[in-house]
Nucleic acid binder design. Structure first.
Lengths: 117, 117
DNA sequence: ACAATATGCAACCCATAGGTTGCGTTATAG
DNA sequence: CTATAACGCAACCTATGGGTTGCATATTGT
């Protein structure tokens, strides 16, 4: 067997690795945080809390969940803690979804070939 | 203002709509189910349970969560209940992630222009 | 008709997620 | 140097998530 053959099994484990990233994105508040940070650059916790219905501590918890998923990271600046978006993991997630779609396309064409026989 | 101008606010709400889809994908078991259905076509609950450490009822619950997110749908066939992948919502999620990445790219180039002044 | 297969329904259990309040600490503005 | 702004830490609360067990129901093969 060719070593570069990516069998479904191997690809499948690679994809399930991304579950924590999707879980991190699977909350409206966190998704909003990601989008805001993505559009506005580095922001402090207080800035991210302003205009929100929830508490600063809640925002902090969400940010730490996002950081555990590798989607954001923090950097201290004086008494502030600035957070900014980290694109690499999100790109991984994008590629994972692309791979699933590609699988689906291949499955469809296999089915089509089968039906045409 | 041009009506086709997609301001960040409008896009932001559109993106947070996808949170339930990411939440549905944010579990390793469900992600595996999606991948399996995507590669193998329509499968019964019993087939999806075989080879798994969890119970049939647990699989059923996961499938219904995925169905609520619009990622799969079921169809009865005799005493079996077959489940198959539904690509449209996943494509929406893909496009959402693409939009975030695009935003990030724009933010970067704005920052670059700003620094170069 | 009957045994086996595939599933549905409901109660229950425990861990965690999302959120809050209260108070202590650090840094900055005046 | 003191008030205030930004944050950390910890305890606490409640709803939900993921999973199970037990039993009832519907379909199928023989």
């Amino acid at each position: 067997m060719s070593p570069r053959t990516d069998r479904p099994a191997r690809r499948s484990v690679a994809l399930t690795e991304n579950a924590p990233i999707f879980a991190a994105l699977g909350d409206a508040t966190r998704l909003r945080l990601v989008i805001t940070l993505c559009a506005s650059g580095a922001l402090s916790i207080a800035q991210l809390t302003a205009g929100t219905a929830i508490t600063r501590q809640a925002v902090t918890k969400h940010l730490e969940i996002l950081a555990d998923a590798g989607l954001v990271h923090d950097l201290r600046s004086g008494r502030e803690r600035l957070w900014e978006f980290d694109p690499s993991r999100l790109d991984k997630a994008r590629q994972a979804l692309d791979a699933v779609s590609a699988d689906w396309g291949r499955a469809l064409s296999r089915l089509k070939r089968f039906v045409e026989d």
